[in-house]
Structures are given as C-alpha cells and as structure tokens.
Design a protein around this nucleic acid. Sequence first.
DNA 1: TATTGTTATACTCTATAACTATA
DNA 2: TATAGTTATAGAGTATAACAATA
Lengths: 161, 161
Amino acid sequence: MSEKNTNDSKSNDANIDYGILNDAIGYLIRRSQIKIFQEFNRHFEALEIKPAQFSALEIINRNPGLRQSALANALGVQRTNMVGMLDALQERGLIDRKLSNEDKRSHALFLTRKGQQLLGLLYDQFNQHEKQIEETIGQCNVEVFRECLSKIAHKLDSSDI
Amino acid sequence: MSEKNTNDSKSNDANIDYGILNDAIGYLIRRSQIKIFQEFNRHFEALEIKPAQFSALEIINRNPGLRQSALANALGVQRTNMVGMLDALQERGLIDRKLSNEDKRSHALFLTRKGQQLLGLLYDQFNQHEKQIEETIGQCNVEVFRECLSKIAHKLDSSDI
DNA sequence: TATTGTTATACTCTATAACTATA
DNA sequence: TATAGTTATAGAGTATAACAATA
C-alpha cells in the first residue's frame, strides 16, 4: 500500500472521518446487528441453523400447535415467506405440520422429538453467544442495554406517523 | 376474528410466548434495527434518501476526494455494490466523480453544491430522528446505549474466531 | 503481478398478486 | 365474503468472478 497519497484530498482507507455517523444510533445499530449476526453464524453454522430458524423453533417450542400465519406475525415476516423456511425445517424432520381438525385451512405447528433434541444443543450455543456479547459490552451495562433495545423494538410498534 | 379457538393448543396471534427471545440481545437488536430503519425512512422518504445513501453523502462530505473503494471499505460493503449507488447519486447531481491525476485508475468523490445543500436538509431530519429515538429510550440511558453499540460495532471487528 | 472501477451473475430476504380450499 | 396456506414473481441487498485500464 503506497503511503504517498498527497492526492486531491484523501485516498487512504484509514483515517476516515465518519462525522455525524460516529454518534448516530441508527448507524451504530445497523453495524452492530451485522456483527452480531456474523458471530451468531459462527456459533450455529455447525448445526446449520440461521437466526430466523432459531427464532421459529423457539416460538414453536413455546407455543405448540400455533398456526403458520400466527408464527409469521410473531416473527414479523409475511406468511408467504414463512412457507419455504417451514418446508426446510420439516424436510429435516425438525417440525411437524398437522392438519387442524377445527379449521381445516390451517396447519398446527409442533417440534418433533428430533427438533426438541436439536433445540437443546441450540440453547448451549445461544448461551455462549449471549455471554460473549455481554462480555463485550460489560456486565454492568447489560440490563440498561437490553431495556433500551426492548423499548425501541416494542414501544415504537404503532408509531405516531 | 372468531375467538372460539379451543383448538389443539394455540391459534391466536396474541399471547404468543417468545420464550428465550424476550431477552436475546441478537433478536432484540434485529427487531430494533428494523423499527429504526422504518422510522428513518419516514423522515427521509420525502427527500428520497435511504440510510446507506445518507451514510455515503456524510462520509464524502467529511472526506472530500476519497476513492470509491475507500468509501466502500468505510461503509462495509463490496466496492462492486458501490457503483450503482454512486451512479444514482451522480445522476441526481449530488456528487461528482473526478478522475484522479495521481492514480488514473481511481475516481475522487466530492459533493456538488446541490449535494451540500441537500445534506443540510438531511441534517435537520437526522436530528429529529435521533431525538425521537432518545425520547423512546430515555435521556438518562442514551450515553450507555450508544457506548454499548459502539463496543459491539467496533470492538468485535476482528473477532476471536 | 496487483489494484480500481466496472459488468455480469447469483443468492438471500422481502413484498405483492393470485390461486385453492376452506370458513 | 373473508381467511390459511401456497405459488409465482419482482425488488432490494449482498457476494463472487472476470474484464480493461492503470500501477
């Protein structure tokens, strides 16, 4: 890397001035999310589970029998984009789609025994993942940090547009 | 909405148990990022500027003459995906790509007068946007929150894989 | 040989419209 | 008529390979 860049103004990769972005919460939260997902994937790639899949498995586990569209709602995705992901989980034998006997349009979702076993392994990785984040931000900040995120994620739900 | 769901177990959209996800920082940060981007877009859609474009304009403003690949590095995107975005900004007359006279391979980036004027308007919206976030999380938490985000975004840069 | 900007390409994620079968 | 699941499709965002011009 040639350091003789007395060019127009700046050409180096280092010494970039991020200006207002240094303190911009929106910018910081975007970069943080990318970093945390990268780290998540390092913990879960051996088990071949992505963040959205982990969320789906946990919600199905906690709410056995819920409909697909209820799961989509809970995860904040379109029900139309839920189909492929559930297909994949079902083909791996992790979930069951049972026909509801009350409303024959809907599918009730359940974890299989294999799905429950995998979730146990996922919890171990998840705990390591969370602990690593907590070490990064410092134990004394964890509660405030979590509280702030919860407020943004939930309290802004139906915003004052 | 029929409330007579005495089905298999759960079928309603409400009363979903999020289990471990309620306290999962990775999950909370993903949901928060979606919410903040939605709110950002409400503030900036009239000016037809997206988050990544705002970041690019601010960095070009603070580092006049920097190369495209330096900007891509700063924003954490591939230089190949920078091209289309800079094309759009240039076609709107917001930036200039000047041929560097030292290294004729590279393009030096500058804001045009029109780009600088727009950035002024963007700052106004940005300040409103940030203030709204700060009101959501509470003034006393802002500093800790920003500090946590910075630690995750930067300190995890070259992680201990 | 390596790097800058570029094109072409592909893969993921997400959003919309329309179909079927049930209600 | 409205809803649940599905399919097809289109748009973003992001990743890699390869090329021409230049270093």
